[in-house]
Computed example of a mutant assay.
Amino acid sequence: MSSAQAQTGARRFDPDRRDRIIDACLTVIATDGVAGTSHRKVAAAADVPLGSMTYHFSGMEELLAESFTRFADRASDAFERRMRDAATTDEAREAVAELIDQDVLRDPRDLVVTHELYTLAAREPRFRTITQHWMERSRASLGLHFDPATARILDALIEGLTIHRALDTGVGETIAFDAVTRVSGSR
Rank of each mutant, 00 (worst) to 15 (best):
M1T: 04
S3V: 01
S3D: 04
Q5K: 13
A6T: 05
R12K: 12
P15I: 05
P15E: 05
D16H: 09
D23H: 12
A24P: 03
C25E: 08
L26E: 03
L26Y: 05
L26A: 05
T27H: 11
T27R: 14
T31S: 10
D32Q: 13
A35R: 13
G36C: 06
A43P: 03
A43W: 11
A44F: 12
P49T: 07
L50N: 09
L50C: 02
G51L: 02
G51E: 06
S52D: 08
M53P: 00
M53L: 03
Y55D: 03
F57Y: 03
G59Y: 04
M60N: 07
E61Y: 04
S67W: 10
A72S: 06
A75W: 10
A75Q: 13
D77R: 15
A78H: 12
F79H: 10
R82L: 10
R82Y: 07
R82A: 13
R84P: 10
R84C: 10
D85V: 05
A86K: 01
A86H: 03
T88F: 04
D90K: 01
E91I: 00
A92P: 08
A92S: 08
A95E: 07
A97P: 01
E98I: 01
D101R: 12
Q102A: 11
Q102L: 08
L105I: 09
D107H: 13
R109K: 11
V112A: 08
V112Q: 06
V113D: 01
H115I: 09
E116Y: 05
E116H: 01
L117S: 07
E124C: 03
E124K: 03
P125Q: 05
F127L: 04
T129Q: 12
T131D: 10
E136S: 13
R137E: 03
S138K: 15
A140S: 13
L142T: 04
L144G: 05
H145Y: 11
F146T: 02
D147K: 00
A149N: 12
A151N: 02
I153Q: 11
I153D: 09
L154C: 03
L154W: 02
L157G: 02
L161P: 03
L161W: 05
T162N: 08
H164M: 15
A166S: 11
T169W: 12
A176P: 00
R182Q: 15
V183T: 08
V183L: 02
S184V: 02
R187V: 09
R187C: 09
